[in-house]
């Protein structure tokens, strides 16, 4: 390992994206494990908490990305830096759009507690999975390119 600081920053960035991924999956797990009749009170509260944590982790990801980009800039590999920054920012924009739609569906669910609304909310959240995966892959690709250049 020749760049311990960058290594740690990559882990922190991956960890925040992992947080987003865990939160949406917990929402889905509640929805799939319990039928609508049982999905009340404490279960709904737990879904709400996990759902509300997603934007917090997205914002934390933005902060960690800044630190990663700062460290990458010092290495002088501009193309790798720009590729990663672009991939993560694109992913974050997608996340925000999905969050916005999911939030609308969440409020519809609160107003009309139907199985259909519950499933629409779940289907929207499931879209977060591939976005998180693509961001993690982008980090992996950057690490591989830096390793090939002897900079990681």
């Amino acid at each position: 390992m020749i760049n311990e600081k960058l290594h740690l920053l990559f882990h922190d960035l991956s960890g925040r994206i992992g947080g987003i991924n865990t939160m949406w999956q917990i929402c889905i797990a509640y929805i799939k494990k319990f039928d609508l009749e049982r999905l009340d009170g404490k279960f709904k509260e737990n879904i709400t908490v996990a759902f509300r944590n997603i934007p917090s982790y997205r914002k934390a990801t933005i902060e960690k990305l800044k630190l990663v980009i700062g460290a990458l800039n010092k290495l002088g590999s501009r193309d790798i830096t720009e590729t990663l920054e672009s991939a993560i920012n694109h992913g974050l924009e997608e996340l925000e759009e999905i969050e916005y739609t999911a939030d609308t569906l969440y409020h519809q669910l609160l107003e009309h507690d139907t199985k259909e609304n519950l499933m629409r909310f779940a289907e929207e959240l499931e879209k977060l999975g591939p976005v998180c995966r693509s961001m993690i892959d982008a980090i992996g690709n950057s690490k591989n390119k830096l390793t090939a250049l002897g900079k990681y």
């Binding site: 960890g15 992992g18 947080g19 865990t22 939160m23 917990i26 797990a29 509640y30 494990k33 404490k42 279960f43 737990n46 908490v49 996990a50 944590n53 917090s56 982790y57």
Partner: peptide
Amino acid sequence: EREPEVNKSLKDFFQTLG
């Protein structure tokens, strides 16, 4: 788990499952 919010959500989830 190092992330407190993830810890708490996982705890709530596993507890509801018994």
